[in-house]
């Protein structure tokens, strides 16, 4: 199966007043299309940095990063932005909705940026799909955390991305709401056949993916597939 994401000897270092700090070291991995992968690790293990590099939000210090067949290391920010617009969707811990746009307009935005004339209709359908049809004209600050994250999920799928990056999607939500949001995320992911890369420090949430990559101090210490029958079912109950 073709790789959707591939990292070759990827590294990330930053300079600090106390010398060079290695955040990621010699990362090699390959994620196939439609695969669901959880990147787990403790705080500071480098998992969010890896997500940023995989999604082309940041540049690596060494190695190659390939996304949907494009070598991000040789692309400038403008080209990476275009690639993101075409192939990548995001779900963030802090939702990252535009506060001055309504729920509907937030979902419409990526569709409009693809020059799609049916943006409004498609966005409304997606909001209906995430159960927010009665909240389309609400602004983010009029929505609860769970609702905001559902809008964010609708927006992530709105661009018909090939790959979805989720950064601690339940980090700002209570357990019950988080579970519902994750159910929705996986259900939509299945429906759209999207590749899902999920960063979390929650092992139980990770168990819902087919594959778990564990990071410790910037290095992969575990890369294991999970058998179909052992994937946690519906919920990640606290």
């Amino acid at each position: 199966m073709a790789s959707m994401v591939e990292a070759r000897h990827l590294s990330k270092r930053v300079s600090t007043s106390e010398g060079e700090l290695v955040i990621l070291n010699d990362i090699n991995l390959s994620i196939a299309a439609a695969e669901t992968v959880a990147i787990v690790g403790a705080s500071g293990s480098g998992k969010s940095t890896l997500l940023g590099l995989m999604a082309g939000l940041d540049g690596a210090s060494g190695g190659d990063m390939l996304l949907d067949g494009h070598n991000l290391s040789t692309m400038d920010e403008e080209q990476r932005a275009q690639l993101r617009g075409q192939s990548v969707g995001f779900v963030f811990q802090s939702f990252q909705l535009l506060p001055s746009l309504t729920a509907l307009e937030n979902v419409m935005l990526p569709i409009e940026l693809k020059n799609d004339r049916n943006a409004r209709q498609k966005a409304a359908q997606l909001l209906q799909r995430v159960g927010l049809e009665s909240r389309v004209t609400h602004y983010p600050n009029q929505l609860s955390g769970g609702e905001q994250q559902r809008v964010a999920i609708a927006r992530a799928f709105a661009s018909e991305a090939k790959i979805l990056f989720a950064d601690e999607p339940t980090g700002n939500l209570d357990t019950t709401t988080g579970a519902k949001v994750i159910d929705l995320l996986f259900s939509l992911n299945k429906e759209y056949g999207t590749t899902l890369v999920l960063v979390t420090h929650d092992d139980r949430l990770a168990q819902r993916c087919r594959r778990i990559i564990r990071l410790v101090a910037g290095e992969i210490t575990e890369d294991s597939a999970i058998a179909e029958d052992s994937i946690t079912g519906e919920a990640v109950h606290g």
């Binding site: 073709a2 390939l66 067949g69 070598n71 692309m75 617009g85 693809k114």
Partner: peptide
């Protein structure tokens, strides 16, 4: 493993 495309490739339609 698919060969990587280079940066010169056009990715989708530019935003109008």
């Amino acid at each position: 493993m698919a060969e990587s495309r280079t940066s010169s490739v056009s990715v989708g339609n530019p935003v109008k």
